[in-house]
């Protein structure tokens, strides 16, 4: 009973889905649309817009890439998207209130959730969806990261301005490191030796030694002609070889490129408005940046450090995750 036009569109959609089975799928959470947009990495066309609960923000791909877990802040739950079916297949209610960001360990059995309204990190058993521990941290927990060997968890708390280092075995806090104002994301370097923590209002990225918990270095950002208070670092991602970091700088509309050996800032790439979080294409060639104010993502070529293209998504895009295509 489909009208011809609808049928044609459907056929075209199916065709595009089948022709690009080798392409990666880019997932973008749209905070204000209550959706996750799925984009084909080859054609950069939208494959599907998946409805989720209210206010989807932080996302994490499971290690086997079969599921994408999305923080649903206003519904106090996690939605689980099947990355083949491209639909929400279940929800975890035991996420704790207002989940904002999450991290999954590399074994894939535990989910760590920052509960923004409750000053807690919730540890969830992925198989049962049960909360197995709650770890008290500072006010407005935000960033979550798991070390490459799954032994160490890092949470940032925005209002308390700290990075909390947590022993993954005991769920006890090992160290509280004061960083600059409003820390957002924490990311481990590829070798697990450092944790990079962005401070949005402070305008810095603290590089913390993951063994001694000492701050080794603080990155400052400066673009001539751009007001210093607009340089607000948020999302951090490293290249495959670990030699370069890409850091989204929020209202300055730029992504900074940093040499991880010398800590020198090598480049600033102009992207859309208010770049927030970003993600590397699994083959390491592109970086995808969610631009909150222009409702699009920017595709950056990693080798040339050039912004190549922007792709419109939903309203207030927040986070990015990528699933590699079949090889």
């Amino acid at each position: 009973m489909l009208r011809p036009s609808t049928r044609t569109i459907l056929a075209a959609l199916l065709l595009s889905a089948t022709t690009s089975a080798h392409a990666d799928k880019i997932f973008v959470s749209n905070e204000r649309d209550n959706t996750v947009t799925v984009i084909d990495s080859d054609t950069l066309k939208i494959i599907k817009t998946i409805p989720t609960g209210k206010r989807p923000r932080g996302m994490a791909m499971t290690p086997d890439y079969r599921e994408l877990i999305v923080c649903i802040g206003d519904d106090n739950r996690l939605d689980v998207i099947n990355t083949d079916k491209l639909e929400v297949i279940k929800s975890f209610a035991a996420s704790g209130p207002d989940p904002e960001l999450l991290a999954i360990n590399h074994k894939g059995d535990l989910i760590y959730i920052a509960n923004e309204d409750d000053s807690l990190v919730t540890v969830m058993d992925r198989s049962t969806g049960e909360a197995i521990a709650e770890i008290p941290v500072g006010v407005e927990p935000e960033g979550m990261a798991v070390s490459p060997d799954d032994s160490l968890i890092v949470d940032t708390s925005e209002q308390t301005s700290m990075a909390h280092f947590i022993d993954a075995k005991t769920n006890k806090v090992l160290a509280n490191v004061l960083v600059d104002t409003r820390p957002r994301e924490a990311t481990f370097t590829k070798d697990g030796k450092e944790v990079w923590v962005s401070a949005e209002v402070g305008g810095t990225v603290a590089i913390i030694d993951a063994k001694t918990f000492e701050t080794k270095k603080k990155l400052l950002f400066d673009v001539p002609g751009v007001r210093p208070e607009l340089m607000q670092p948020i999302g951090i991602r490293f290249t495959l070889d670990g030699k370069t970091a890409f850091i989204a700088l929020g209202p300055s509309n730029r992504v900074a490129v940093v040499d991880t050996a010398t800590y020198q800032i090598k480049n600033y790439i102009l992207v859309g408005q208010r770049p927030w979080h970003l993600e590397l294409k699994p083959d390491g060639t592109k970086m995808y940046v969610a631009n909150g104010m222009t409702n699009d993502i920017t595709v950056i070529d990693v080798a040339t450090q050039k912004a190549e293209k922007s792709v419109p998504v939903g309203r207030l895009p927040w986070g990015v995750a990528v699933k590699p295509g079949q090889k």
Partner: peptide, 17 residues
């Protein structure tokens, strides 16, 4: 499991700068 939340012992304080 909130009741014990505030009893967590203080841990290492790190401040390099």
């Amino acid at each position: 499991m909130r009741s014990l939340a505030w009893l967590l012992p203080f841990a290492i304080i790190s401040a390099a700068n």
